[in-house]
Write a protein that binds this DNA or RNA. Structure first.
Lengths: 305, 305
DNA sequence: GCGAGACATAGGATCGACCTATGCTTTCCC
DNA sequence: GGGAAAGCATAGGTCGATCCTATGTCTCGC
């Protein structure tokens, strides 16, 4: 393989017209540079310099090589600069997983925070659905994420709780909101549940199942939808009630279900919002930055864990 | 110094998402590739891959590096192709020295010959003045040249005669052309001499001096000009006579001095046209090509040496 | 012709690249 | 869950490339 060192020696020699001067510039001995040039000539199977009494003179091949060698070396420098930039977060892409209420609460503001600090970066918030986030975390494609979880043991994942988010009962029927909803009432309710809080995080699901089990019933939902927005709309239409995160209720009810309201459960139930990443992984500066900013954002809205 | 090998290992690993697969593709062992990647990471002070259970996954830094690494390697390939091209004379520049009558006789046709055989090359025929050609030869900037010379010993230069070119007396006065010009008549003539044949090659000068010396006179010229064309024009105007190469006379007289003619000297005198290059130098294919073609051209016009 | 300058060569020391063998972690499958 | 398989990391050793100093050889200038 052709080496960059050889090209550097070649260029120095070309510019000085002398092996000795090139060696001095590069901080090597004259025979070393001589050897590199010869190796390059052997590698390219062409003579680059004519050895003329005092000094060396480039051949036509040398003249031809020069601009290419310069381009290669400048591209290498460009490469190093680009990577140095990413190291200091001046450029490149930061990817962060964010799913569930966390996304609902903090996504836009979080991106704004990052861009305010590092105007050059590109930000990707991954979170189309929870399977996606977990899968990418597991495969290592995603370094860290902030999601709502049930417990703290997630098969090889390190889970760091940062906030808790109350689960509330939402309904278009004001009568049902007059007092906190107990497990008994929950078991008899006609519910629409969104994947967001139901399947995905396992958090709300576990919480609800526990509550309902205590009444001797099995948890059942009347309707299941993908996103919490749809669920809220259905609640607004009076087709069912639902259990969603309090933050989501505050955000979405006025907009999507103006007639509906919410009330706490009894006893109060909480989702856990946590930072998740592979256990025994050292996080990159970008990931640490995102964790710091996302935590701040979330705790400004939800109660700390 | 960052190495191309490291970049190649990086790219193979990136594409396969696996060190083992990359090693297989590159024909190395897995630990070797692993070491190269680690060296690259250390060199750039950034982590390029996350080691995740089965295989490796590029980090943001890895994603950033990839297009740059590709560019570097493709530039290197481009470099190698360019140099390979010059080696087989498909491209690049061929420089060849050519001065005096050789230039006058053969330049355009010689360029045509080269281009017919290698349409991609660029041709430079160096020969503004003789000092230039000799200087560039001596300094090694020019590999070889075809010029008119006096002898065969030119301080470190290898001289290979290829043809001889008669020197003739040119005049606008038909009376002076009725018989060959002897040394006596030459000594008494009013001459215009061009640098081309006078100072430069030392050939015509030596020849003439020898002839004139035999008469007891010193060689003297009435007019000295830079180029042979001007000398011929002056002859055409009847201001002086001249001694130039026969080939030049045949080419230039009809065009520049329609009324003038030429006659041989007595005894006939000859310039030597020769290939000149540094002694003990191995010539490049390009130079050998030029020598071959130029020799053919010259010998088609002048008598072989 | 002789000394200075510059490239080539020779020989030895050092460093890096590569390999094989093996250990450790993760994943997959029963 | 446990064992096999896959994949990366580590260890130790060999070999070649790189680099140095010392010296030879050629060219140039006085």
């Amino acid at each position: 393989m052709l080496s960059l060192h050889q090209l550097a020696c070649f260029l120095a020699t070309y510019e000085h017209g002398s092996l000795t001067a090139a060696a001095e510039e590069l901080g090597y001995s004259q025979p070393s540079v001589s050897e590199q040039i010869r190796a390059l000539e052997r590698r390219l199977d062409v003579q680059l310099f004519r050895r003329v009494g005092r000094g060396v003179v480039p051949t036509t091949a040398g003249d031809t090589l020069r601009p290419y060698a310069e381009k290669v070396l400048s591209t290498v420098q460009e490469t190093e600069r680009a990577v140095a930039g990413i190291r200091s977060l001046e450029t490149g892409t930061i990817r962060f997983g964010m799913f569930g209420t966390a996304r609902l609460y903090a996504s836009a503001g979080l991106v704004a925070d990052v861009l305010a600090r590092y105007p050059g970066v590109r930000v990707e918030l991954i979170g189309q659905n929870s399977n996606d986030v977990f899968d990418q975390l597991r495969r290592g494609r995603l370094e860290a994420a902030m999601i709502a979880v049930a417990g703290v043991d997630s098969e090889g994942m390190a889970v760091t709780p940062v906030a808790r988010d109350e689960l509330v009962y939402v309904s278009a029927d004001r009568d049902r909101l007059s007092s906190p909803v107990t497990a008994h009432r929950l078991a008899r309710a006609s519910l629409v549940m969104a994947e967001t809080t139901w399947r995905a995080t396992d958090s709300a699901r576990t919480v609800l199942r526990r509550m309902v089990h205590e009444t001797g019933h099995n948890p059942q939902t009347r309707i299941e939808v993908e996103d919490v927005e749809t669920a809220v709309e259905l609640v607004g239409l009076g087709l069912a009630d639902s259990v969603i995160n309090k933050g989501a209720a505050e955000q979405l009810l006025p907009r999507l279900a103006p007639g509906a309201g919410w009330v706490s459960l009894r006893p109060r139930q909480y989702d856990t919002i946590a930072i998740v990443h592979r256990a025994n992984a050292t996080l990159s500066p970008a990931a640490r930055l995102m964790i710091e900013l996302a935590t701040k954002r979330i705790q400004a809205i939800a109660e700390p864990a």
